[in-house]
């Protein structure tokens, strides 16, 4: 149920608004955008593709945030404090990815800071 791959929309098809050409590492296929009609993607957007349908838009900011947090794992407390000061807030754009009551930063840096091991 789970093979879904990120691909970039390189062309929207004029004759059928629900179809787009998506590219994955130079391989192109027509993908159905029918499940994303509430917020249709545009050329240049990245989408998650499963069985020829786009399932969701991929949030670049969310991805970058995740990578930043992982990069910070294991760094010194000072570095951790500095990063918290940047205020990496909630992600915007594709609707909230954080649930009510859920930390905006899924890896709570404060835990790391409070309980250094």
């Amino acid at each position: 149920m789970c093979l879904a791959i990120p691909g970039k929309i390189v062309e929207l098809l004029p004759e059928d608004r629900s179809l787009a050409v998506v590219e994955v590492l130079g391989v192109r296929r027509k993908v159905d955008l029918g499940l994303l009609q509430e917020e249709p993607p545009v050329t240049g957007d990245w989408v998650l593709i499963h069985v020829g349908f786009a399932m969701s838009k991929i949030g670049e900011e969310d991805a970058l945030q995740q990578l930043r947090m992982l990069t910070e794992l294991g760094e010194s407390d000072a570095a951790v404090e500095e990063v918290r000061g940047y205020g990496l807030g909630d992600s915007e754009g594709q609707g909230s990815r954080a649930g009510p009551g859920e930390e905006n930063t899924p890896c709570d840096l404060s835990t790391n800071f409070a309980n250094p091991n």
Partner: peptide, 15 residues
Amino acid sequence: ENQYKRAVPWEGNRA
């Protein structure tokens, strides 16, 4: 918790 934020909206896909 949602680790897969870049692809998973908390409310899912309404369409």
